[in-house]
Design a protein around this nucleic acid. Structure first.
Lengths: 349, 349
DNA sequence: CTGAAAGCGCTAACAA
DNA sequence: TTGTTAGCGCTTTCAG
């Protein structure tokens, strides 16, 4: 592999000129020199050694992506969008870490990122307020929290990390509104018990909208505990289990919002095995719009976050803050949209 | 961040002794020295700078994972297993690249890996015989091909890359056998048109088993072209489309093997919308056993590759060959198993 | 058994 | 406008 000296000597210039080209400092450079250097790079099939750049500058052209599990379709979709945004807009690559929502794994991944010279990481974790994150931040790791709470420093009253999420309250509202508009008169929000911030907001939005529509007493929350919190298998099992609960309810809902699509899929299967049809007996709206939702029967109507936009902003913020550490952390909220498919049916008023 | 010199001075030894510890050359070292060094590391919370190691040694503690798209559940599952094997067995991390089965993207990813000091990559690509792979190999990149053909060098008649796949012929046989055992008398293999090696083998296995059971004239291949070859959405659409074809067949099959689970899911949806019930009218077996398959209705019976074992071997081979470049490439075939769920029904003989 | 020192490829002062 | 050079943190050879 050719190095910067090979390029310099081939172009008949010094290494610093080549380095200047590599780092975009070409404004002061004679056009002809630039061309010679660029040609030399091409001819030698030169690619700068990232490890060396990294050793020198302290950071790699990589960002970390910390997810509970890449097997969860929502996070896989996120990973794809992050990879695209990082690569196409900035020439960065993605180092992946599955943490199974375990602190040890999160901790270990953050440490590994640091040793690999990665200084920016997108974090999907419901416990970003924990100390391993603040320690990493102190060591110079820049973080963006996806779909989590924003954490405020007790002393400075300053947001600690960028936070990017879909407007979860809005998501809850959109789902509730659609069910009501389609004629549902007894609605329920079905969720896993553990209350992350984003779950709380979804529930709030759902209940608030129902109240505004005068359906306060006809909107409830139904919940159950999953064995593990990161996987899809467990969510589907929970869906099955909650379907049983719902089947035995004296007053059955005619419309359900599920906390996420995977739970919705489990619910549909569970309800069906109880002889309850979706959407004829109960309409269902999911949240997340995973790609499989369009593929099942009935195709699932779902509230979709604008993932590509969110990924773009996350990568952008990460890289800006790497270059200008003084930039204050901010919170970004994205408006979700409803993707209408077949799991909700119009009911007579 | 503490560096090796800080550790050395804290422990009262030279940097080379610390380096010796880092690299496991402790056999000649006085126990007491070792302990002092280890303590110093702990006290300073020292983590070696990977970039520096890499610059020196030429390779990073990372492996690359090249997949068509992480959104495809089969590859997401693979990614998880690879991440686990790399991290837990060897302390390696995974650099992810989505290539959408495009040569440019594959090429770019391989180049980026090299510049990042990554010397080993797991490749999921149906075109590993193309020149961008052999060029990368010449530049010192070690590759393992997942679920692909093994490529033999024309001159040396030597396998070029390690290749790890499930025994695809076996997979086709298992699926066909199960359908026949359950009483199917007119079976079909449904697939996307493009013939990768692994697809060919599945079809071969399917047809061979049928022939052995005296059902040669009652086993056929039904195929259609997908718009794109990497996604799940397109596969599902293809499933829908092929369901229409099947619906109009004068002699309908009573058992179908789908080339993969996603296609199977599309088929089920498509058949259902044509009023054909699964499994009552047609039994279906998928291949790949993605986690979603257990979640749909009917839960899909599927032929499963032993992913975790395969990932373990792939990572192991990669790292062995990095350390001992003389090791010859080999081909590894893993036996699949049938995961029985609800999409196949027992028919009276 | 331990230490000194060269150098991996690059960046960015600083000098010219 | 371009060149010279120190040094980023580590590994490894060679001396002691």
């Amino acid at each position: 592999m050719a190095n910067i000296r090979d390029v310099a000597s081939r172009a008949g210039v010094s290494v610093s000129s080549v380095s200047n080209v590599l780092n975009g400092r070409t404004d002061q450079m004679r056009q002809e020199t630039l061309v010679r250097i660029e040609n030399a790079m091409l001819e030698l099939n030169y690619h700068p050694n990232r490890a060396a750049q990294q050793l020198k500058t302290g950071h790699a052209k990589m960002i970390g992506l910390l997810v509970p599990s890449i097997v969860n379709p929502s996070f896989a979709a996120l990973a794809r969008e992050v990879d695209l945004a990082a690569k196409n807009n900035h020439g960065y690559r993605v180092l992946l870490g599955n943490t199974y929502r375990e602190e040890d794994e999160e901790q270990a991944f953050l440490t590994d990122l640091m040793s690999h010279g990665v200084r920016g990481v997108i974090v999907v974790s419901s416990s970003i307020e924990k100390s391993h994150f603040s320690e990493a931040a102190e060591n110079g790791l820049v973080m963006v929290n996806y779909d989590g709470s924003s954490v405020t420093d007790a002393e400075s009253n300053q947001i600690l990390y960028d936070s990017v999420s879909m407007d979860n309250r809005q998501a809850g509202r959109i789902a509730a509104q659609y069910l009501i508009d389609q004629g549902c008169r007894e609605i329920a929000f079905v969720t896993e018990t553990t209350r992350t911030i984003s779950r709380c907001h979804k529930i709030e939005g759902f209940l608030a909208l129902a109240a505004e529509k005068g359906m306060k007493t006809h909107a409830r929350v139904i919940e159950g505990k999953a064995t593990k919190a990161y996987g899809d298998t467990e969510m589907v099992e929970l869906g099955n289990q909650l379907a049983a609960t719902i089947g035995e309810l004296p007053l059955k809902p005619d419309g359900i919002v599920a906390i996420n699509d995977v739970l919705a899929i489990g619910l549909i299967a569970g309800l069906r095995s109880k002889g309850i049809r979706v959407p004829e007996d109960i309409s269902i709206v999911g949240i997340d719009n995973i790609s499989l939702s369009g593929l099942i029967t009935p195709a699932l109507t779902s509230v979709a976050p604008p993932l590509a936009d969110m990924a773009t902003i996350m990568v952008e913020r990460l890289i800006s803050r790497l270059n200008s550490p003084h930039i204050n952390a901010e919170e970004f909220l994205f408006t979700p949209t409803l993707v209408v498919r077949d799991s909700v049916i119009k009911r007579p008023g």
